[in-house]
Simulated scan of single mutants.
Amino acid sequence: MRYSQLRAFHHVALHGGFSRAAEALFLTQPAVSEQVRRLEQDHDLLLFQRDRKQVVLTAAGERLFRFTKQYFETEAQIEDFLSESRAAIDGELRIIADSAHHLTDYLGQFRAAYPNITITVRSGNTNDVLDELRAYNAEIGIVGSPSPGKDMTLLDLGSARIVGFAARERVSDDLLSLSMSELQNHPLVFREKGSKTRQKLEDEARRAGITLNPAIVAEGREAVRELVASGAGIGFVSQAEFGRDDRIRQIPLEGVDLQMGESMIHLTQRADVRVIRAFMEFVARIRNETSV
């Protein structure tokens, strides 16, 4: 196995094709193809399924790609360490969050402090966040789980009460709260399985001997919000994520105190990645300053 073979494989997997990998490596496409072919031949492995339009990683290719992501990231960390005197930090920071609301206090300030870092943000439930972090497809995650796993480093972002919410025209103004048993009399809009908000609500219902059957299951918090705003039913969210929307109003849950904690996390073994370290330290400092 040669370094050049691994590098060629990694860039084909990363960029989704031999031509784009060749451009990234400043090589010809035949040269990249030959390096990957030799890697496969030397180790009797098929790493890509090839056709005229695309290349797709095989199961063996997926496993090797996960290793090469770690390998070449370690190489980048070594380079960063050896050039630590550089004042500017650059690179890409990929964030996956169960709710972007928990980032609004930090991203603008962070971008001002580190203008050379490109930030991307996408959404997913807690399971999605953990899977993407462990697959090296994101650097930072925002989750509602208080214990995401021993392989994760956690920064507590606080907690807020879970409330119901409904379209203003759907519920009367004198409906001030709803008990768990009263929820059974309304159409409910839940998020997909894997949502911590949904899990906490269902767990509390089971403890009370109640079964809550959703009328609609929607993927993602924004989809739930739009369905509820249209009058489709009652949804659930933490107060910290409720935001401002004149179409809907909060309905407190009576007799229960369901709290949704939020944490910022990353893979512990990636703690020395410069963009991760910079972001975690920045957020921790802002939280300390605002709590004084």
Rank of each mutant, 00 (worst) to 15 (best):
D80V: 10
A88L: 13
G243T: 06
R66I: 06
S159E: 11
R249L: 05
G108I: 08
F236N: 03
E262N: 15
G91N: 10
H102C: 12
Q259S: 15
S33N: 09
T118W: 09
R191F: 01
G144Q: 05
G194W: 01
S85Y: 05
F279L: 03
E281K: 13
L6C: 12
A208W: 01
Q29I: 10
A223K: 13
E79D: 10
S33E: 15
A284K: 09
M152R: 07
R111A: 07
L82G: 04
H10R: 05
R122C: 14
I89P: 02
R37P: 04
E23H: 11
V283N: 02
G16S: 05
M180S: 05
G243E: 09
G149I: 06
L212G: 00
P148Y: 04
I142W: 08
V256C: 09
T153K: 07
Q250M: 03
D131H: 09
R86I: 08
L107W: 05
L154A: 05
A232P: 01
F242Y: 01
A60V: 11
R287N: 13
N213P: 06
A97W: 01
P115S: 05
D156M: 08
P115M: 10
I234R: 01
D128T: 04
L57Y: 02
A223E: 12
R277T: 14
E23D: 12
R274L: 11
D90Q: 02
P30S: 07
V224P: 01
Y3S: 14
Q184P: 02
Q269Y: 08
R111L: 09
D173P: 14
A8Q: 00
R287E: 07
S19D: 04
Y3Q: 13
E222A: 04
V273E: 11
P214I: 00
L25P: 03
A31R: 09
E182G: 05
